[in-house]
Amino acid sequence: MKTPTKKHTNDVILESSTTFITFIIFLFAVYLFFAGHYTPGGGFIGGLVTASALVLVLLAFDIQTLRQILPVDYKQMTAIGMLISVLTASGALLFNVPFFTHAHDYFNLPLFGKTSLHTAMLFDLGVYLVVVGVTMTIIQTIGESD
């Protein structure tokens, strides 16, 4: 991993603080994700924050290190996220076909009562995974490109 600013010489301060900070950012991202339904946050932001934490790791160490910590194929992560979202959406559609004719357009994903939190969360989880997956795919492929 080469960045324009620095070669990956061992910057002890950056590395040790990164391990610490990344962890905090992760926790914050998880918090944001779950808080999304009631307070600021959600899948987008959670995903982006997670991705930025990973980018930090990338900057501080290099790609190999990141691979060791998190051996994930980000393209598959994107695909899984898409799948979750689509399935949630279509599942709701199928499940609520009778509703569809009555309700407005806004009810593309009609979620009522107790089930709502659940499925909306699933959908958001898909969004989260896609955002993390795509961001990391982009960063990683560019970083690996030479």
């Binding site: 999304g36 959600g42 994903l109 009522f112 709502s116």
Partner: peptide
């Protein structure tokens, strides 16, 4: 309808879910 508190997020994942998809 959506049992949520954050309107922006609820709009994104629920009311206008297709946009987000």
């Amino acid at each position: 309808l959506a049992a949520g508190g954050n309107m922006v997020n609820v709009i994104l994942v629920d009311f206008r879910g297709f946009d987000t998809l």
